[in-house]
Amino acid sequence: MNSKKIIIVTGLSGAGKTTALNILEDMGFYTIDNLPLGLEKSLIDINLEKIAVGIDIRTFKETKDFFNFIDLINIAKVDLEIIFLEAEESVILGRYNLSRRAHPLKEKTLLDSIKKEKEIFFPIREIADLIIDTTNSRPINIEEKIKANINLQEDLVNLNLHIQSFGFKYGVPLDTDLMFDVRFIPNPYYIDELKNKSGYDKEVSEYVMSHRESQEFYKKLLEFIEFLLPQYIKEGKKHLTISIGCSGGKHRSVTFVNKLAEDLKINSNLNIYVSHREKEIGHW
């Protein structure tokens, strides 16, 4: 593997590709948006060590063209990572209506174009190293996820691990590999002195973990994750997102995410990034 690093930023139109490229440019990457396929050899030959390339549905005619592009870079033994951006259909629809720009796919309706693009991009999403759901994200949230997950020290870190809490009442996160539900644990929300606090507060976390089912579940969860991590590393996976949800994403899930991150920190092969979705969005 040579010292060059190429990051491909792709995904659904209107999901934030330009924002992601701007973030990478600020991180020192030379950015290219909508590089025509056929010029990929120039990326390998050019004397630049950090390159970020934006590729969307306008760049290729068939999905196989994208995979041929990836194959050429891999054959050259260049360090490659793929960032895939997506958002809920209703949100992309709203963004297009607000900007009044035309969707690159010319289906009968805008919604048909969005659905068609999701179908075309599905195989590409499956091989992405990092998937970012921008449905409720601000640019600062996207920046945090990119900085936490993009591996610039490949020889030191084997796996970038993102652990996030969320509330089921606000919908499940799209950008996840493993999801766990802790709504079976007694809810601090119904205790007056704990209701307005969060899993960051000692009183809340102690209450959540005081129950037998909490302790037993956490023990099994930690053992399960510790078993899975080396298996993913062995298979070459670079990024893993674990989501833990409760009703509102403020008490139980936050407690479990923080505790899991703390207990996994002893593993020097991991770069751990913690986020609490509902806090970021303003639901707390």
Rank of each mutant, 00 (worst) to 15 (best):
N158I: 02
L98G: 00
E86R: 08
K17G: 05
N151I: 13
D65H: 01
F122A: 15
F121W: 09
E126G: 02
L43N: 07
L161Y: 05
K17L: 12
I131D: 10
K118M: 10
S113Q: 11
D33Y: 14
P36L: 14
D56R: 06
K41N: 12
E144D: 15
A20N: 03
K108N: 12
K116E: 12
G94C: 04
L37V: 06
I124E: 01
D129R: 05
P123T: 03
L152H: 02
E143S: 11
L110F: 14
I142H: 04
I132G: 03
L93D: 03
K106N: 15
G16E: 06
K77Q: 15
I142R: 08
I57A: 10
K17S: 01
L93H: 07
A148N: 11
E117K: 05
T63L: 01
L39D: 12
K147P: 04
K77Y: 13
P36D: 14
G28V: 13
T19C: 08
A148L: 02
R125E: 14
F122Y: 13
A20K: 06
I82P: 00
D71Q: 02
M27N: 04
E107P: 03
L72A: 00
I83Q: 07
D155E: 15
S42R: 15
E107K: 15
R101V: 07
K50E: 15
V53I: 07
A15M: 10
L48R: 15
A87G: 09
D56E: 04
H162M: 15
H162W: 13
P123V: 09
G94P: 05
P139Y: 09
F29Y: 13
L85S: 11
N136W: 06
